[in-house]
Every structure is written in structure tokens, then in C-alpha cells.
Design a protein around this nucleic acid. Structure first.
Length: 815
DNA sequence: CGTCATACTCTTTTT
DNA sequence: GAGTATGACG
């Protein structure tokens, strides 16, 4: 079967090019001249330099629609790549909307990774894989490397697997296969980096697996070594569109260049000022070099900003101006001045969080001529995720609803990964990594020794761990109660697999309720020559069955730790998520590639996220806390990458400010608790780069260091001065206030500013001494009741004041 | 083999 | 400070 037969068979061809060519093009009227040029210049290489908030996605979707409308390409001949699944979804949606019809056939609109998986499944054998290869997540990757490291008798304390993983990842990002890693890297990882890289790749092949970086690397390798394959795709993809081009790494760049080589109709959209992923291999150079790489390229600049006020844009420009070697863009708007960017200094991180919380509440009511804002309009953008905690703590105690975006991802949670380990093993019984993960979870009395026996047996017979386990059990190589449990597990796995595959049909059997399907070609799994009927249970039921019968659910039900209920909840959610998929296999594939978690909880909430996660988003009101040297710009960034690192941090600042539509508030704190240790810092150097005429310095009464220029409470300074200041810290009013606060008198000032409805039913449900459960703090006893707030002595988290509705009575535990 | 205590790293950022 | 990893003990 030729590769393109199935492409044609793809949903794609549903739109006839002729029918579309006759249509009007209303979408063009909606564009400004620059956008319009970017849309209409269809042939040849185009670089769309799109500043923040300049309608990039609009132009990009209009371009796709234009390609379709003019009949230049059918939907399945357009390759459009994004970095995130979210961006891909958004684009699909908007193309459909603009076109006025739902488009089924954009099979090649997706992330680099998802498109590469699709391609790689077709050509896997060219790099020594089978088309049903599994995609390893970071955790599997690390465990695999650790095995290799230990096998080589190296101290994995001194030479951590994470480091090696990072190294290999880097190399893959640069499209270096083991043989191509340059000599200059030879000293990496104690001079054994390349050696391990080679071993690792071999091992992956044995496991019929690949990691994230491989998805791209393998495709580049295939394109380079198999011109016939490349040629097909080069001809097939008549038009290529790339979003966020400034974030591409070398492998992605090569991949694109190879594919674009025939038609050369490649349109890259990006903003060099928003390149913030250098640390994971992105090369700003790709976008800076575009005109050299693609001779005859047209560059279109989108500079009219539709998002922010003048002051905000000017502040952002002022900061980004400090970077060298930009392509150069100046954003402008006709939106008028608006509010100046606000700057405020705080004594410490706790104060910062408290002030921010109060500010959010007054923005909600509407202050100083600003309209009232929904909490959904507000976001707190931090440099590093650990900064989130201060805000979470504060918001929890004052009962301010918030959502953390990009926090611990759903699919990375322990219980989810365990569950998926079971699913993986049912779908592919020779997934050794999955086997290792779940053999002894829940506890089955299979410790180190038993597992070594299994390993040895598997190696001896040259089979998977699961088969090795079967043999080991049959031959009585494993003793004790573990043996029985292991046998049980193996039998279960076999049985679940049979259930999934469906009943075996004998020659001539007819499906009871489907007369056409003597042999069901669409059945998810056709193994060997065996014919299978429709499974008797849905994959959701199967999933539930697996989790229950394996004892996994039971394990958490028996667990009395505070996390257990949440974990069970997550497992339920996991099974629910299965509904959207045809079968377990489809689900696993999806999960491997989905890294963003859309938690669409209802209700108005303030968003808290990292600056990286905020790229592409916008909010009327944005808070940018933690602008202190060392934190932002991050010391590590500067140590590792010097000026380049600093410039990337500066771009991060630029990204942060340009997220704001109406109000942008920057803050810093003189002191912060890091690693449980108090540390002081100076205001960020980026603060000095904010143009004064666009900044409002807020200095609340009794506050230290609210002025900038001479911004720090201790004066701008040398290390000496800082040390001296540290000595003074303990006499300062702020310190004393902090001490007083941590004393937590039960009658501390009631907060008059709150206009929250007190939920009396919630309060009256509690009484002194009652044992309660809190989602974040765990179990505790009520030691005080005051309005709608409870004072609770938590077992783990200590004494806290918490709004009653965040607390549940715990009826399970007698006292 | 499983549980508990201690010791040690960790904080960038993610497809 | 918290989570993980290792080692001693039951």
C-alpha cells in the first residue's frame, strides 16, 4: 500500500476545491494591511514577525482558509505545526469557524510531536522499531537510564540519571544521533555520555520504544536516509505553516527544511522577542536566519497591537530594548494611554502575597475608575513554580478562589501512572517498563529478590518480563506467598487482554448483533490470524475491572493518608476520560502526547501560573511578583548561559508585561523564604529598565523600599551593604510585624474589607474539637471558630485559619 | 519482605 | 521545608 492511499482516504478530501473557489472571502475584510499581506502572499517562503497581541493566530487561520478557498490546496495537503496541543485545537476551531463549516480533514494540523508520531508509525521499521512502539515518559526514561548506569557500576548519586537524561535530550534536540555527537562533547557525563547515549538507544530499540526527542530525531533520520520517503512527503505537503517558529530547535528546523524543500511554500510565524525556550533547545537563531535559509523570503511585520494600553506597551518595549540582535519591531496601539504600569515593593514574600490578595479583591469591586473585574480577568505570573505557594497559602486562608495552571499534570500523578502501567501492560504485554512499575504495586510480596529472578528468567529465555514471570512461576523459581500472587497477576493480565481483544471467532462465526462483521476489520486489535469478535465489555468497564481486580483501587481505599481520597477521585476521573476514546490503545497514545491539562473547573477564579505557561494568553489585570535579582532574572539562567541567559530572562519579562490588557502590576520583596531559609535580595535589574514615565510607584504606608531607582530598603548595593542590611533586618518594623503575625493570636484583626457572604450553614456544621479534612492541609482538629473561618490544628501543616467551606467533616475517624 | 527513620537533594522553565 | 532514596530493624 502506498503511503498516500491512506492519506487520500483520510477524512480530508471532503471539501471540493472548485466549490470553495467560488466562495467569497469575507475573512479578508477583517484584516489590517500587514495581516492581509501575510495572508495573501501564499507562494514562496514567508516570515510573519508577529509581536505580542498583534493578531497572529487570526492571520494564520485566515491564511489556511485562504489556501482552501482559493483552491491552492486541499485540507490534507497543508501541514501546519504548533507547539502545544492547545494551540492546535484553537487553530482547528478557528479555521472551522472562519470557514463556516466544521472541517474534518486537517489531518496534518497538530503539534510537532503528534505529527511525527503519525509519520513514524508508518515508517517505524526504517529506524528499527515496530509501528506499535510505545512512547516513554520522563519517568520511564529516567528509570531506564538508571538501570544502565547501575549496570555500568557507576555511582548514580554522583552522576545522576536526570543529568544524563538532560544531556541526551539536548543532543537529540540538536539532531545528533549517537555517532554524530561531536568530539567537543566527549567529556560530558564523566566522559561516558556518548557511550550511555548509544546504549540507551539500543535499549529503546529492544523495548520497541522511543522517547520524546526520538519522535523528531527518528523522522529526521528517516528523511535523510530515505530520499524516496522524503520525496513523497515533500510533494504531498504543498503548503507548510509553522507557529511559534522562534521556539523551534535544530531537529525541528531540519525536519521543516527537508519537508519544505520542493514547494518552498513555508510560512513561519514567530516573534524573536518571545523566544523563551532556549533552555530546552530552542534556537532563536532559526528565526533570525530565516531570510538566509529561505532565499527570496518575504518578511511581514505585524506591529499593531490589539491587546494592551500604551503604557503597558511602552514599559514592555523599554525592557526588551536592552537585548542585542533583535529583528526589531515596535508595537503600537490606538487604544490610548490607560493605567501606568504599577510597581510596588514589599518586605517579604508573605506581604507580597497578602497585598496582592487585597488588591485582587478591590479590583473585583472596581477601584479608582477601573471597572469591576471578574476573577477570571486576573492572573499572577511567576518566574518559578515555587513562588506559587505563598499565593496559594494566602488565598486559601482568605477564601479567594484560584486556579493553578500548568501545575502538577494530571497524567503525571503517581496513581494515574500506575493505572496506566496496568493499561499499557494489557495493551502491550511486552512493555517491560510498565511491568516493572506495577509488579509490586499494590504490594504482592515481590521484593528485590523476586524481581531479580524474573529479570534473569526473562533474559535467559529471551522473552519479556511478563513472560519471564510466567516461566519463573511455572518452574517454581519464586517461593513464598509472592509466587501465588505473581501467578494471579499474570493470569489476570492474560484474562484482561482476552477481554479487550474480544471473543475468538471460529471460521464462519457471525457476530450476534452485527451480521456484516464476520471479520471485523475495524476491531482494535487483530492478533496474528485469530479472528476476534466485538469485546463484551466497553473499554471503560475493562479499565474499572483492571483497577479493581488488580487490587489497585483497594490499595488506596485502605490507605488512610490524607491524599488517598483525592487519588481515588483521580482514578475515577481517569476512567471517565476514557469515554472520549475508542479503545485503550487510542487513549494511551493520546496521553503520551498530551502534556497540557485543561482543568476546566467552573467558577470565577484567579489564575496562577508561570511566565512560560502564560505565553499566548492575555488578561485584563496581570500581577508580576518576585522581580528580584537572582529569582528574576534567575541566577541559574545567568550562571549557565551568561548574557544569552539574561537576554532570555528579559524576553520572559517582556512576555509577562505584554500579557496585560489594562493593568499590569510588578512587585518585589526584600526577603523571601527559600529552602525554608530566609534570604534577602535586591530588586530586579529589569525594574531599572522600566521607563519611568510609564510607571506608577506605589508606596503603601509603612512600607520599605517602595521607591525605585534607589529601590532597595538598604540602598542599591554591594554585597557588603547587603550583609549589613541583613543584620538590621531583625530590628526593622517589618521583621517585628512578621514575628507578631506568626504568633497568630486567635483574635487577630477581623477583615472589614471582605464583602463575602458568610455561609452560616457551613459554619454551624462544625464544632470545637471536631476532626476535619482539608484538601491541601490534610487532617486536623478545630481549635477555634470565628465567623466563617475556622482555626484548625492540622496534623501535618500546623495551625491554620481556613474558610469553612474548604473543609469537610471527617466522619470516618472516631476520636 | 515491609515499615520506619534518617539523609539528602531540590527550584526554573515542558513537548 | 518537602519529597525522595537509602538503610536498619522487625
Amino acid at each position: 500500500m502506498s503511503t498516500f492511499d491512506d492519506m487520500d482516504a483520510f477524512e480530508g478530501a471532503s471539501l471540493s476545491a472548485r466549490a470553495m473557489a467560488a466562495r467569497p472571502m469575507p475573512y479578508l475584510d477583517d484584516l489590517n494591511p500587514a495581516q492581509r499581506e501575510a495572508v495573501e502572499r501564499l507562494d514562496g517562503p514567508v516570515l510573519m514577525l508577529a509581536g505580542a497581541g498583534t493578531g497572529k493566530t487570526k492571520a494564520l487561520t485566515a491564511r489556511i482558509v485562504h489556501l482552501l478557498t482559493t483552491g491552492r490546496a486541499r485540507p490534507n495537503e497543508i501541514l501546519s505545526v504548533t507547539f502545544t496541543n492547545k494551540a492546535a485545537r484553537e487553530m482547528k476551531l478557528r479555521v472551522g469557524r472562519m470557514l463556516g463549516q466544521q472541517i474534518e480533514g486537517m489531518p496534518w494540523l497538530g503539534t510537532f510531536h503528534s505529527i511525527c508520531v503519525k509519520l513514524l508509525r508508518r515508517h517505524a521499521e526504517l529506524v528499527g522499531l515496530k509501528s506499535n512502539f510505545t512512547i516513554l515518559d520522563t519517568d520511564d526514561q529516567i528509570r531506564l537510564l538508571k538501570q544502565l548506569i547501575r549496570a555500568a557500576d557507576i555511582d548514580d548519586k554522583r552522576w545522576p540519571a536526570r543529568q544524563l537524561a538532560g544531556l541526551i535530550d539536548n543532543w537529540k534536540n540538536r539532531a545528533w544521533v549517537p555517532a554524530k555527537v561531536p568530539a567537543s562533547e566527549a567529556s560530558a557525563y564523566n566522559h561516558r555520555g556518548t557511550e550511555f547515549y548509544d546504549q540507551y538507544q539500543t535499549r529503546l530499540r529492544e523495548l520497541n520504544a522511543c522517547d520524546f526527542g526520538d519522535l523528531l530525531l527518528h523522522m529526521v533520520t528517516i528523511f535523510q536516509n530515505h530520499p524516496d520517503v522524503l520525496d513523497q512527503y515533500q510533494r504531498w505537503f504543498r503548503y507548510i505553516l509553522v507557529d511559534e517558529y522562534q521556539d523551534t530547535n535544530v531537529a525541528q528546523y531540519l525536519w521543516l527544511r527537508l519537508l519544505a524543500n520542493t514547494h518552498k511554500n513555508i510560512c513561519c510565524v514567530g516573534d524573536d522577542d518571545q523566544s523563551i525556550y532556549g533552555w530546552r533547545g530552542a534556537e532563536v537563531g532559526n528565526i533570525l536566519r530565516f531570510e538566509k535559509d529561505f532565499p527570496g523570503a518575504h518578511v511581514v511585520r505585524l506591529e499593531q497591537n490589539y491587546r494592551s494600553t500604551e503604557h503597558i506597551l511602552a514599559a514592555a518595549s523599554g525592557v526588551i530594548r536592552g537585548n542585542e540582535g533583535r529583528l526589531g519591531k515596535e508595537l503600537w496601539t490606538d487604544a490610548g494611554g490607560g493605567e501606568k504600569v504599577r510597581l510596588i515593593g514589599h518586605w517579604d514574600g508573605v506581604d507580597e502575597a497578602r497585598w496582592t490578595g487585597e488588591e485582587i479583591e478591590s479590583l473585583q469591586k472596581g477601584t479608582r475608575g477601573l471597572r469591576p473585574h471578574s476573577l477570571d480577568d486576573m492572573a499572577i505570573l511567576v518566574r518559578a513554580s515555587h513562588q506559587m505557594r505563598a499565593f496559594e497559602d494566602r488565598f486559601l486562608t482568605i477564601g479567594l478562589p484560584y486556579r493553578v495552571i500548568g501545575g502538577p499534570r494530571f497524567y503525571e500523578r503517581l496513581e494515574i501512572r500506575d493505572a496506566m502501567g496496568y493499561f499499557r501492560l494489557v495493551v502491550s504485554p511486552d512493555d517491560d517498563l510498565a511491568f516493572e512499575r506495577i509488579v509490586n504495586t499494590p504490594k504482592r510480596g515481590l521484593g528485590d529478590k523476586a524481581q531479580q529472578v524474573i529479570q534473569a528468567t526473562a533474559r535467559e529465555f529471551g522473552v519479556s518480563l511478563l513472560d519471564g514471570a510466567r516461566i519463573a512461576v511455572d518452574e517454581g523459581r519464586i517461593k513464598g506467598k509472592g509466587a501465588g500472587q505473581l501467578r494471579h497477576l499474570c493470569e489476570n493480565l492474560g484474562r484482561w487482554r482476552e477481554v479487550m481483544l474480544g471473543p475468538v471467532l471460529r471460521q464462519g462465526d457471525v457476530e450476534p448483533d452485527d451480521t456484516d462483521a464476520v471479520i471485523d476489520d475495524e476491531a482494535p486489535f487483530v492478533v496474528g490470524e485469530t479472528r476476534r469478535g466485538k469485546p463484551t465489555v466497553t473499554h471503560m468497564e475493562l479499565a474499572g475491572m483492571i483497577l479493581d481486580e488488580s487490587g489497585y483501587t483497594g490499595m488506596w481505599q485502605a490507605d488512610k493518608t490524607p491524599e488517598a481520597p483525592g487519588r481515588l477521585e483521580n482514578l475515577k476521573e481517569l476512567v471517565k476520560a476514557l469515554e472520549q476514546f475508542e479503545n485503550l490503545q487510542g487513549f494511551l497514545e493520546h496521553v503520551a502526547l498530551i502534556m497540557d491539562n485543561e482543568s476546566d473547573e467552573a467558577g470565577e477564579k484567579v489564575s496562577i501560573m508561570t511566565l512560560h505557561a502564560a505565553k499566548g494568553l492575555e488578561f485584563p489585570c496581570v500581577f508580576l511578583p518576585g522581580w528580584e535579582d537572582g529569582l528574576f532574572p534567575s541566577q541559574r539562567s545567568m550562571d549557565e548561559s551568561g548574557l544569552k541567559g539574561l537576554e532570555e530572562e528579559r524576553r520572559l519579562a517582556y512576555v509577562g508585561i505584554t500579557r496585560a490588557e489594562e493593568l499590569c502590576t510588578i512587585s518585589f520583596a526584600g526577603n523571601r523564604q527559600v529552602f525554608g531559609q530566609w534570604q534577602s535580595a535586591l530588586p530586579s535589574r529589569f525594574i531599572d529598565e522600566l521607563p519611568e514615565e510609564h510607571v506608577d510607584v506605589l508606596t503603601p504606608p509603612g512600607l520599605y523600599g517602595g521607591n525605585y531607582g534607589a529601590a532597595s530598603p538598604y540602598g542599591a548595593g554591594s554585597g557588603l551593604e547587603t550583609r549589613a542590611a541583613e543584620a538590621n533586618v531583625y530590628n526593622s518594623p517589618g521583621w517585628k510585624r512578621m514575628q507578631a503575625r506568626s504568633g497568630q493570636r486567635p483574635t487577630s484583626q477581623p477583615r472589614e474589607s471582605r464583602t463575602q457572604v458568610i455561609d452560616l450553614t457551613a459554619v454551624s456544621a462544625f464544632e470545637m474539637g471536631q476532626r476535619v479534612f482539608h484538601q491541601k492541609f490534610g487532617y486536623g482538629d478545630i481549635t477555634g471558630i470565628e465567623g466563617d473561618k475556622l482555626e484548625i490544628a492540622f496534623e501535618k501543616a500546623g495551625v491554620k485559619k481556613v474558610v469553612a467551606r474548604f473543609v469537610h467533616a471527617d466522619d470516618d475517624v472516631p476520636f
